[in-house]
Amino acid sequence: MPDSLHVKVFRFNPDRDVEPRFDNFEVPVFDNMALLDVVMHIQNCLDRSLSFRFSCRIGMCGSCAMYVNGRARLVCRTQVSSLRTQDITIMPLPNFPIIRDLVVDMAPFFEKWKKIKPYYVSNKEISEPVVVRPGSGEREIIDDMLDCITCGCCYSACSMVATNSEYLGPAALNRAYTLIADKRDAIRVERLKTVDRSYGVWRCHTQFNCAEVCPKNIVPTRSIQNLKRRCVLHKFGIVK
């Protein structure tokens, strides 16, 4: 590893700045340095006016996604050494409004999340945890898709989101799938209708950009494909 990094950081304060700029910093490298350590170092020691967001620092909360060297990543889970270069450019996630510097407003992401009715609706007939044997196939691929930490990486990488402001996007559709395939849920059909729209599942062009950047190895594209199949079956009156 080199001794130091040349870091370019995106700066923008909507209250004061007419347009964004980049600031340059030289950051000393230490062992096990993650990108989060880089922005922390800048903020603590070089320019205390920098703003960014983080919380858990171990890839569980999904607060710290940024666009670094051309790709959306969780900065807490990205080792500096993995970038294989001394030159680092840090920007806020694309496809989101900017609050200040590297902090984006996640509202559009969650507005769409809310549109698919992301909450489980309990079935009056179920009063205790259902019996489901692990190998029974009953849960399909739901459990693999449940680890979403709503970090927004996929949403920022999806070209369909970029060009269609109405498109629900990968994370919300993935969440919809995990509920629609959950046989315990009471409003599965109603929820299916929220995604069976032109700005729903049918807008996805199956390019897997979302899966490529997902830090949790979720493949929203697979969930979306499953949803499309369900939409078709539903038209023929088949509810699985």
């Binding site: 489980y120 309990s122 205790e128 945890p129 019996v131 044997r133 692990p134 739901i142 509920l179």
Partner: peptide
């Protein structure tokens, strides 16, 4: 499990 919609890991007996 029943109201919030979590699903805890299951044992062999389900």
């Amino acid at each position: 499990e029943v109201k919030v919609g979590c699903f805890f890991d299951r044992d062999e007996d389900g």
